[in-house]
Nucleic acid binder design. Sequence first.
DNA 1: GTCTATATCCTGATAGAC
DNA 2: GTCTATCAGGATATAGAC
Lengths: 216, 216
Amino acid sequence: MDLVPREEPEAADPRQRLLNAAYRVFAEKGLQGARTRDIAARAGVNLAMLHYYYRSKEELYAQVLTPLYREVFSRLDSVLSGPGDPRDRLEAAVSVYFDFLKRYPSLPRLVMWELASGAQVLRGVFAGLLDPASGSLFHHFRRLFQEGREQGIFRDTPPEQAIISTVALIIFPFAARDLLTAALPGVADQPEFIERRRRHVLDLLMRGLGEEGHNP
Amino acid sequence: MDLVPREEPEAADPRQRLLNAAYRVFAEKGLQGARTRDIAARAGVNLAMLHYYYRSKEELYAQVLTPLYREVFSRLDSVLSGPGDPRDRLEAAVSVYFDFLKRYPSLPRLVMWELASGAQVLRGVFAGLLDPASGSLFHHFRRLFQEGREQGIFRDTPPEQAIISTVALIIFPFAARDLLTAALPGVADQPEFIERRRRHVLDLLMRGLGEEGHNP
DNA sequence: GTCTATATCCTGATAGAC
DNA sequence: GTCTATCAGGATATAGAC
């Protein structure tokens, strides 16, 4: 947990300061665009130390992303496989992500770079999570929608499409925040945007996927 | 229209071949990751010619993206401001994008790179489109949802949120296609995926945004 | 562990002959 | 318009003193 970069100014350990700085620089510029000099400078650490602790830029990149992904997935997993009816579980899963967003505002942008470049690190983390015994994130998600359908709460929607839509609705606006601010001034640049967005996403999903007559 | 890159193998004009190659390389690697040498090589054109026709890598990048954005926006604009009830217009707008996707499969990835890096080109095109007289894309979109609400077709949803969600649902899955293929094998890697996705998006939007009792 | 200095490679861009 | 050759700058990464 100590390896997880925080968006906090101070940190004692130079290893941690490098991770914090790398988190910010990678979010801004991506893996290719980031300069190891910048990261070292922002961390207040000598450039040579960056290579001493983390062999290469790519390894540092992976060390920044992997713990973040792991933590999100772990929390999602426990919420999705937990108790509660499908509706509540979906709502909890969405909220997990939005809460995470408050702690790591740059995460969507980081994910965006990853996706554009082929998502190698993310795919690696996924591969490590594919526990054939318990199934995984997607298994839980699928089960959620199937149960919901059996109980007459959700309509008959392909679970894969529902999963994709859920993720898209959550991640996209925050990754595209710069554009939104330019195109729709006064929307995404407000502090209340996260909460507004959370409510809208939940509403859209519940109504869009839910069986009529089961809406709050 | 000749400047719009096509994903076709052959082209006579070296200018056009450079645009075609640049379209592919930029989609794969992004602006920073792309190498002018690669683009020239893929185009079968000498590296010096790339700089002869397009002064810099950045200018080539802009020349690839601008016509694409312009065309999408122009088509969306005419569909959104056209006749038909709000429901039909929304459906037509979504379809415009999906049709475009069939011609330019790499466009979402290109957009993804843009968004991650701050969307400078996209914002430039937007600024050029902001015709204060006629309003613009977003104006039409807003009007669509407002009309729909007045007619009792759409529920009372913040138009900005509806716009964001529409774009997110359409773009995201195709930009994240590599990841989806890894995480959900047999879903996004099928040729029917575009059509499946189109149907799901329309269904989700209509039910999610529509007033109950107005669903087909 | 920390620093300075530097090797080595690669990149975008151009000069200049044809 | 097209090519070869090359420049100048900047990048990652390391060697080696302390």
